[in-house]
Design a binder for these strands. Structure first.
Lengths: 153, 153
DNA sequence: ATTATATAATAGTCAGGGATAGTCAAATTA
DNA sequence: TAATTTGACTATCCCTGACTATTATATAAT
């Protein structure tokens, strides 16, 4: 029998397609539909709907709580960004990062203010407290997540 | 089920916009309009119209009592930003950080894309590799530097 | 008239219950 | 061995209602 997680993943992706890129679910309801414990939904989301794979997830607890999953845009800028994101490795230097960001401005992917923000967040100044051997890794993560966020809106 | 608190929040914010920054309501009347207990109005106000979020609330009991909500007048965006920057300590949680960022959107200091960028750069997801005891420090630094960059352009 | 007191009309506080979602590690399965 | 499944425990958010606090107004006492 196929793994339940795969089935839930497929179900959600179908839903996302039908809803044109975004769904909002209730964790318990979905768990109930598939006769599993609620935390399995978290498992599916954390293993299959990651930022790396092009999804943006938000949630809220309490009465009327929800989990929303958005697929990033796949057209034009979005596609280009996704390409860049996957091309960025686990580490990136400040200099390389700045080159990327400047390119985005040239390509009209981001504007000057957004570039300033991104440079600020990925500068060595900001990451000064992080051990040198970790710094380029954190920078890569920050940069990739910022780019990912741009593909959503 | 939709959250009543969100509906009331939206109602009040619309009212505040229409009235150019200030409203005066009667607690019981509003509770009646939304079929809830009066104390829910207090809940909405205390969770959504806090000083942190840029609102100033006054009230008076007894006959002819009222609750007034005013949106704080922000002189210039730059001044406001500088004020926020200096008010941020050495550490900040993800939640608090998001509250600030949402606030900037409300004040038209940044737009939705910029907010996404900032949230991405200050999220726990991004800082996951930083030891917990350091995480809020790094977040504060990142946030402050990004805000700084906005005061320039 | 003036002052004191009672009553009515507000708003505030707080703790509890219910409804969600998140985390983590143990157990299971492929 | 790695991925999946499970469930106990935790965290967060919302809504309610009983009880309290404050203010204005009407009434009574002087």
């Amino acid at each position: 029998m196929a793994r339940l997680s795969d089935i839930i993943e497929a179900f959600l992706k179908t839903l996302i397609n039908e809803e044109e890129g975004a769904v909002e679910i209730q964790r318990n309801e979905l768990a109930n539909k598939f006769n599993c414990v609620p935390s399995q939904i978290n498992y599916v989301i954390s293993t299959r709907f990651t930022a790396d794979k092009g999804y943006y997830v938000e949630s809220r607890r309490g009465g009327g709580g929800y989990i929303s999953i958005k697929r990033v845009n796949t057209e034009s800028a979005g596609e280009y960004l996704m390409h860049i994101i996957t091309s960025i490795g686990n580490k990136i230097s400040q200099l390389t990062s700045e080159v990327f960001i400047n390119n985005f401005v040239d390509y009209n992917i981001i504007d000057d203010r957004e570039a300033m923000l991104m440079k600020a967040a990925t500068s060595d100044k900001v990451l000064i407290d992080i051990p040198v051997e970790k710094r380029d890794e954190v920078r890569a993560t920050v940069l990739k997540h910022m780019l990912m966020s741009l593909t959503v809106l």
